[in-house]
Structures are given as C-alpha cells and as structure tokens.
Design a protein around this nucleic acid. Structure first.
Lengths: 133, 133
DNA sequence: TGCGTTATGTTATAACTTAACATAACAGCA
DNA sequence: TGCTGTTATGTTAAGTTATAACATAACGCA
C-alpha cells in the first residue's frame, strides 16, 4: 500500500541494524542528518512508530531508545536483556514467561494488549572479567 | 541517617498514595506546589529516586510515571498491570515469572540487576462492559 | 563553635515526544 | 493527461520528561 513511506523506514532500520546497542531517536536523527540535514524529529518518530508497530524494531521502555529486531520472527513478545556496561541488547523468546503472564492476567480479569519485559544488568561478556582484580 | 531527606519523600509518597493511577513527576510537582510554590523538578526527582530505590514507589517505564507501592512488601520485582482505559495500576507478585527470567538469564550468562515487567491493557472493570452493545 | 556531610534550592538546559498545519508525492479514475 | 483523494513528509513550535551544575542551608559530631 504505502511504498513511499517505506523509504524512510528503511533508512531508520538500516541505522539501527548497524548497531548492537540501542539508539535514541536523536541518535538516529543525527546519523541520518549527515545525508539529509533538514530531517526533523517527527519524521524519525513516525518511522519508528511504523517499524515498532510491525515488529521490525523494539522500543526499550527503560531507556527510551530503540533496537532493530533480530529477525527471527514469531509474532510474540520478547524478553530484552540490556547490558548496563556495554549497552548490548539481546532478544530472547520466552514462551514460559508469556504463559505465566497470561495466567496471571486471567486470574485478575486483566486483558493485556501489550507486554513489556526487560532485564537490566550485565551481559555475559561484561560479567566475566578477563583479568579479575 | 537521613531524617531531613525523608520529609520531602513523605510528601511525594502521600500524593502518590492518594491515587490508584500513576502520576508523572510533574503531576506530583503540581500537587505539591499548592503548598510550596517554589518547588522545582530536581527536588521531586530526587525524592522519587530515593523512594524507588527502597521500593516504596514503582516507576512505570512504559508511561514515564510513578505509583506508590501497595505495601505488601517482599523485596521482589512485581508485575505491574496498567489499564489503558482508566489508568489503574495493579501490582502482583509473580515468583514464576521471575524464576523463568532467572533461568533465561542464566542460559546466556546474563547477570540481571533489575527487572521490568509490565502489562498494558484493560483491567477487569474496564474489560467487562456493564451494558454490552 | 567549627567542620564535614548530605539534602535541598535554584537556574538552566538537555533529552524525548508530539500537535498542528503546510506541502508534496503518489494512485486511481475521468 | 489532469483532477482528486489519500497518505507521507516537511516544518514550526511547543509540550513533557529529566538532569547537570552549582549555591545554600540543615544537621551530626568533635
């Protein structure tokens, strides 16, 4: 339907895919301004909204930033593990977690439409010091 | 240790406890300015940081807002269910979920220090229409 | 009382997000 | 082709959320 809208989305996605770390909307804006100095925030936010909507990008609620989805797609909420040290973000499917959450919601009559599951901490690489003190 | 800091924290907490809904930092600021017009944002954010730190307040990452903890305290991460319609926030302990997350972290060597688990959707009251169409 | 420590006040600004409206690209049809 | 409706993008402006940096004041203790 929208072929023209996808151009901007592709640019934004490309920038995100060049990074293991999450980027803020303004990081993306800065990157894309190198080739198009007149870009304004709403354009970026619109692209991000579309990409998030259709699962190509995840928003990290705890950091107000964005990462490209790793691609192995199942239309299912992922657990996002975010390293406080190096910023790397890993994405994991966790059917068990989602199951538990569904049960929990059912118990109280809550009808969930969106889940946010994030872990902050240290990734394996950063947690294992190469030269311990 | 800090007896003097706790005064501001108590005021902030009191405002939050008067609401089932979450409040933004600026909502709180507005409320407290009625009795102290010169209050500035950093004061609120500092109080919120302290309260969040010691578990008396939860931050809703997906809404950038804050709720008082419901009090039944176990020093454990809670699942927060947030109603898109009425704004009510419910807090639930979910050992299963936390367990699953720990296992998942262990698998990848991730060392979590903080968990964020939020469900957005409709609470029981709002999901059950009184007069169905 | 004087000193070190920590909270608070104050000013300013940074960072994140969206509203609102103007313009331009495209799709389909007369 | 040229009109027209639709949707994306540009543009301006502002709203919202959060923090840096430094000044001041309260407190605890020697």
């Amino acid at each position: 339907m929208a072929t023209r809208g996808e151009r901007m989305q592709a640019h934004v996605l490309a920038v995100l895919q060049q990074n293991r770390r999450s980027l803020s909307a303004y990081d993306i804006l800065g990157a894309l301004r190198q080739s198009n100095p007149k870009l304004a925030p709403p354009t970026i936010y619109r692209a991000l909204a579309a990409l998030t909507e259709n699962g190509k990008v995840h928003r990290l609620e705890s950091l107000n930033s964005y990462v490209a989805c790793d691609g192995h797609h199942a239309d299912e909420t992922r657990v996002l593990s975010i390293c406080d040290d190096c910023g790397a973000v890993a994405e994991t499917a966790a059917p068990d977690v989602m199951n538990d959450l569904s049960k929990l919601a059912a118990t109280s009559g809550f009808v969930p439409s969106r889940h946010v599951v994030e872990m902050l901490g240290q990734c394996g690489d950063c947690a294992t010091p190469e030269a311990p003190k």
